[in-house]
């Protein structure tokens, strides 16, 4: 069996007494899309920075294409950072031309779909959606084997988001391994495999079905007074979410929800339904926050 394109093996990264990533193991294989999920500060960006070789792990090993990150591995790497990494005072063509020369290949500006759309405008003067597509083109121009995307669709409209995900799927079908961080659950469900992080630790991994498992949620009958139901359940400290007018409580038996509602003066039917990925994440995050052995306790913040 060939080596994974990216392999983090028991990596930990500490900044002083703060542990941003704690003993995380994960892989990205050729042709698969791996979603890296977690709340802000979960350690996603630090893990990505370690995979890119920008930060050395305090413990554990990182391997890209079967070897430690190096100048050689970077030739096969495509990276779209959250901030896009484009030169805003250059035009789209000039940006693409620079990247093409950096990776010692030709033709990127000539084959660009974005450049004609952007015209001769400076990148700083074009819309965010177009900027993201440009960043994708720049990252894909040298036909990388591994694509690392840090919240690639942040701040773009749904149409542009769909386009970008089409691009990601096309790359995966070509055998490119993709590691993507996202806050959008719909996007997470487009991934072949997910890695959930919380407080620096890997807390779950697998497909969304694997991660959700048998976890259920209690859903309040939408015909009931949903706003009062939400207020009562929230006041009771339950992990309540609202989707449209559907009030749901993750990982809580319907009987318990019914009792709490009744105590709050709300009579409503409650049924058990499969939990969503978002609800599962909320459960995991709450457990990590309130659990007796929260893995990484610190009030310090760091770029994660």
């Amino acid at each position: 069996m060939s080596e994974p394109l990216a392999h983090a093996d028991g990596v930990t990264r500490r900044f002083g007494d703060f542990t941003a990533v704690d003993d995380v193991t994960m892989t990205v294989e050729a042709g698969e899309i791996v979603g890296l999920l977690g709340a802000n500060g979960a350690g996603k960006t630090t893990l990505i920075r370690m995979l890119l070789g920008l930060v050395l792990p305090s413990e554990g090993t990182i391997r890209l294409f079967g070897r430690p990150p190096s100048r050689e591995t970077r030739v096969r790497l495509g990276y779209v950072p959250q901030g896009l990494g484009l030169y805003t005072d250059l035009t789209a063509v000039e940006n693409l031309d620079f990247v093409a020369h950096a990776f010692a290949h030709n033709g990127l500006p000539e084959t660009s779909k974005v450049a004609p759309e952007a015209g001769g405008r400076l990148v700083g003067d074009i819309g965010l959606g177009l900027q993201r597509r440009l960043a994708f083109e720049a990252a894909l121009g040298h036909e990388p084997g591994l694509l690392i995307l840090d919240e690639p669709t942040s701040g773009v409209d749904p149409l542009s988001r769909t386009r970008l995900w089409d691009t990601i799927h096309v790359q995966a079908e070509r055998g490119v391994g993709v590691l993507v961080t996202t806050h959008y659950m719909q996007e997470a469900q487009q991934c072949d495999r997910l890695v959930l992080m919380s407080r620096g630790r890997r807390v779950a991994a697998g497909s969304d079905a694997d991660i959700i498992g048998s976890t259920t949620a209690a859903e309040v009958d939408p015909a009931a007074d949903w706003s009062r139901a939400f207020a009562v359940l929230d006041a009771a400290g339950l992990p309540v979410t609202l989707a449209g007018r559907r009030v749901r409580v993750a990982d809580t038996p319907p009987e318990r929800v019914r009792d709490v509602l009744a105590a709050g003066g709300v009579e409503a039917g409650v049924r058990s339904v499969p939990a969503t990925l978002e609800e599962k994440m909320i459960i995991i995050e709450r457990a990590a926050t309130s659990g007796p052995s929260a893995p990484v306790a610190s009030t310090r913040t760091a770029s994660t």
């Binding site: 990264r13 890119l52 050395l56 554990g60 090993t61 990150p69 190096s70 970077r74």
Partner: peptide, 21 residues
């Protein structure tokens, strides 16, 4: 390029610099 490790390395591969210079 990344700085030296925050804690001493436990394996030879882990000291590989990013820069590849």
């Amino acid at each position: 390029a990344p700085r030296r490790r925050a804690t001493p390395p436990s394996g030879p591969e882990r000291t590989a610099p990013l820069a590849g210079a």
